[in-house]
Amino acid sequence: MSTPEERLAELGLSVPEVVPPVAAYQPTARTGTLVYTAGQLPMRDGALVAAGKLGGGVSEEQGYEAARQCALNALAAIKAEIGELSLVRRVVKVVVFVASEPDFTAQPKVANGASELLGEVFGEAGKHARSAVGVSVLPLDAAVEVELIVEV
């Protein structure tokens, strides 16, 4: 069976460098067998891949891709904490924050960007509980932010 990193490569992706914190926190916190990530923004090569609000200037498709990038960044933080992604026993919980205009209600569709990536990378172990929450604004005007909890 292939490793999570090999499955990412099959998707044309790789684990990026850990995005440096933008405030006073660390990228992960580990307690027992659980690793919690800080909220990950859709940063790629030092820039946001989507800024603004869903239902405003950001399309559902852009939000989906932003959530996918956030999840990839969360995997980078987890890998830095534990050494290799094959040590992840399962993804327990995903929380997706979506900067939204008041009438935008497709937060779950945006959150699928993160959830589907985790399923592709971890298979059955990628199935998780999830919350998809609409918020008025996120740090740096990011369109999406994702947190993960994984068991190792």
Rank of each mutant, 00 (worst) to 15 (best):
2 S>V: 05
2 S>L: 15
4 P>F: 05
4 P>E: 10
5 E>G: 07
5 E>S: 12
6 E>A: 14
7 R>S: 07
9 A>E: 09
11 L>H: 02
13 L>R: 13
14 S>M: 02
14 S>C: 00
15 V>F: 08
15 V>G: 06
16 P>N: 08
17 E>H: 09
18 V>R: 00
19 V>I: 14
20 P>T: 07
20 P>H: 07
21 P>K: 01
21 P>Q: 04
21 P>H: 02
22 V>Y: 14
22 V>C: 00
23 A>S: 10
24 A>R: 10
25 Y>W: 01
26 Q>R: 12
26 Q>T: 14
27 P>M: 03
27 P>L: 02
29 A>I: 03
29 A>G: 00
30 R>S: 11
31 T>N: 11
33 T>I: 10
33 T>C: 02
33 T>D: 11
37 T>L: 10
38 A>W: 06
40 Q>A: 14
40 Q>I: 00
42 P>G: 01
44 R>G: 01
45 D>L: 03
48 L>S: 04
49 V>M: 06
52 G>W: 13
53 K>M: 10
55 G>I: 04
56 G>Q: 04
57 G>E: 09
59 S>G: 03
60 E>K: 02
62 Q>T: 10
62 Q>G: 04
62 Q>E: 15
62 Q>D: 14
64 Y>P: 05
65 E>M: 05
67 A>Q: 05
67 A>R: 03
70 C>T: 09
70 C>G: 13
71 A>F: 05
71 A>G: 11
72 L>G: 05
72 L>E: 13
73 N>V: 00
73 N>W: 00
74 A>K: 01
75 L>N: 06
76 A>E: 01
79 K>H: 03
80 A>L: 06
81 E>S: 15
83 G>R: 15
84 E>P: 01
84 E>C: 06
84 E>K: 12
85 L>E: 09
86 S>Y: 03
87 L>D: 03
88 V>M: 11
89 R>L: 13
90 R>N: 15
93 K>H: 15
94 V>C: 12
96 V>K: 08
96 V>A: 15
96 V>M: 15
98 V>A: 13
98 V>C: 13
100 S>L: 03
100 S>T: 14
103 D>M: 07
103 D>G: 02
104 F>N: 04
106 A>Y: 04
106 A>E: 12
107 Q>T: 11
109 K>V: 08
110 V>Q: 09
112 N>A: 09
113 G>Q: 09
114 A>I: 00
116 E>N: 12
119 G>I: 11
119 G>F: 09
120 E>T: 11
121 V>S: 12
121 V>D: 09
122 F>T: 12
123 G>M: 08
124 E>C: 08
126 G>F: 04
127 K>E: 06
128 H>L: 15
129 A>Q: 15
133 V>L: 15
135 V>R: 09
137 V>P: 00
139 P>D: 01
141 D>T: 04
141 D>C: 06
141 D>S: 13
142 A>K: 01
145 E>Q: 15
146 V>Q: 11
146 V>P: 07
147 E>W: 12
148 L>P: 10
149 I>L: 13
151 E>I: 05
152 V>T: 14
